[in-house]
Amino acid sequence: MIVRILGEGQYDVSDDALPRLNELDAAVETAVEGGDEAAFATALEALLEGVRTVGVPHALDALDESDLILPGGDATLEEVRELLSGDGLIPG
């Protein structure tokens, strides 16, 4: 799976990593639903760091479409609220 972090780039992420990323995503969703800015910032950074840790940078010269698009680390709670679906940022 190819995951794009806006403003940063794409990462190849194994399907085996999705359960852990979904846990991190749930923390983002909880913080957004609660309107907790501090928890949101911490949870979003943990999710993005999770992608960076389990993922491998996708080839810069590849023109592959991303399977998932995550906001950058500077995204606001309101911006992420607009992106959330019933499954969070990472479906599943």
Rank of each mutant, 00 (worst) to 15 (best):
M1Q: 10
E45P: 10
D61W: 06
A38F: 13
S85I: 08
A39V: 06
D36T: 09
E29F: 11
M1T: 12
A43E: 04
V28H: 11
A43H: 06
L84K: 08
V51D: 08
D74Q: 13
G92T: 13
Q10Y: 13
L48D: 11
L18P: 03
D25E: 04
E49A: 15
L47Y: 08
I90V: 15
R52I: 01
E8L: 14
A38I: 14
D87M: 14
I5S: 02
A59Y: 09
G88C: 07
D67N: 04
A27E: 15
E79L: 05
P19F: 08
L77W: 06
L84E: 04
A38N: 11
H58D: 05
P91H: 11
L47E: 05
H58I: 08
G35P: 10
G92I: 13
V32L: 09
M1P: 13
G72Q: 02
D74S: 14
D61H: 04
F40M: 05
A75R: 10
T42Y: 11
L63S: 11
G34D: 04
L48Y: 13
A39N: 05
D12A: 15
F40T: 02
D25I: 08
E82G: 08
G50F: 05
G34K: 04
V56D: 01
D16N: 10
E45D: 15
L89D: 00
Q10P: 10
